[in-house]
Simulated scan of single mutants.
Amino acid sequence: MRIVLDGISRQMVDRKVKAGQVLAVPGPSGRRIYPTFQFAADGSLLPGLPAVLAALPTRDPWAVLNFLVNPDARLGGRTAVDLLRDGRVDEVVRAARHLDDQGA
């Protein structure tokens, strides 16, 4: 299945990944996998995702994926993706900035 990011070219998607605006994780044979949760049905990005990716203290794709999809106590036990879908971008950005804090 191919995901089209709002009708933009593959090269533009690659630039967005390098700029930290879209998440790509390593897949088989060195191919990139773009987790579908970050896209709406129309191919647009999940609102607030680029701000959250920029706020995270890591660019490790697996750590970023872990933060986005696993429940987090700093987010009331919800996932970052759930809160972004609810429009609660500021809360997720704050939690992202403190990902490496002790006791978080």
Rank of each mutant, 00 (worst) to 15 (best):
L49V: 05
P26E: 10
L99H: 14
H98T: 14
G27C: 00
V69T: 13
V13P: 04
M12W: 01
W62D: 15
A41Y: 00
Q11W: 10
A40S: 11
A104W: 12
D100S: 12
G27K: 06
L23G: 01
R74N: 12
D86N: 07
R15D: 06
I8W: 00
M1K: 15
L83I: 09
G43T: 01
V89P: 00
P26H: 06
I33Y: 13
L75K: 02
A104I: 13
N66C: 08
L99Q: 13
A19K: 00
K18C: 02
V69N: 09
L65F: 11
Q102F: 15
V13D: 03
A51D: 15
V17F: 04
G27W: 06
R59A: 10
A40H: 14
D14M: 13
Q11H: 13
Q21H: 10
T79K: 01
M12F: 04
V52R: 05
V93Q: 08
R32A: 07
L84R: 08
P47I: 04
A96Y: 08
G7L: 04
N70P: 10
L23R: 01
A40M: 11
G27V: 02
G48K: 00
L53V: 01
L84Q: 08
G76N: 02
S29H: 14
V89D: 02
D101H: 12
A80W: 06
G20A: 04
A55R: 04
L84D: 06
P35N: 04
F37R: 03
V93Y: 04
S29T: 10
P47C: 01
L65S: 07
V92K: 05
K16L: 11
R59T: 06
D100E: 13
T79V: 03
Y34K: 01
